[in-house]
Amino acid sequence: MFSYCADPASLDRLHWFACYLTTAKQMMFYQSFLVVIVLMLITAPIALAAGLAGALAGRSHVLPLRWIGWAYANIVRGVPDIAFFLFVPIALDQGIEYLRLKVKCPDWTEPVRQGNDFVVCAAAKMPLNSAPQYVHELYGIALAIAAYTFVFGAFGANVLSGAMRAVPHAQLETAEAYGMTRGQITRRILLPQMWVYALPGLSNLWMILIKATPLLFLLGVEDVVYWARELGGSKTSAYTYAHPDWRLWYFLVLLVFYLLLTRVSEIAFARLSRRLSRGQATAAGMKEARA
């Protein structure tokens, strides 16, 4: 990076670190922090939508739909989330390949499960073997996002259905007395009022999402944990920048990063909650009105 970095062995400590911390590999490490944040920003709205769908399904008048909503929210909660992170990507991948097999190779007769293998025709591979490397990586990340969405959608369904139950019943009855249909009540009365009750649960969920992001490492994504292990491991003098095992320090950096992230989120949610309770018939809303 800097002009004096040509020969690291001859540098004093300060300059050595300046050079070491700006190598291309280190830059990849810094980028992976962005990947984590981008992943959270993509996952959160999709998971919220999935949660809303789950919560509404749980209130539906159609019995099977209610069962699906209930089962989705409860089964995911009863099982460790990491099991779903391992299960969903591979299950989804095989499901997609199976569907593509049915469409692209209709005359394929062999069974897809042969012993310990999952076999589909070449045209049904996802992504195609001929696809460039970045497509494979993007596909992997998309599967990871699907897994996160699946798990956090269920958590969100739990929080939102609790919030829907917390909306004062008189409000809904009044709407009914005005002759609104069920759909109108949901859209105009239930959903707008629910958010203030949902906020504590949602902020908690956001914290859990933050704390679940290092599990990306298990899905084969080159995330912060991957780079911390890669860069922190001891480097012999064969490398340009030789150093002993620094993984402890790298993980300390990750710890501080996550502490900052949760702390900043906490403050932001406290602000948002004050903002949302303005004009609401809750204790916090009354306090706001008096102030």
Partner: peptide, 22 residues
């Protein structure tokens, strides 16, 4: 409480493992 609740358990495992191997 802040440190242990504010950071992922996964990172804590890594950190403590490195600490213990020292």
């Amino acid at each position: 409480v802040f440190i242990f609740r504010g950071s992922p358990l996964f990172i804590q495992f890594f950190l403590f493992y490195e600490l213990f191997t020292l």
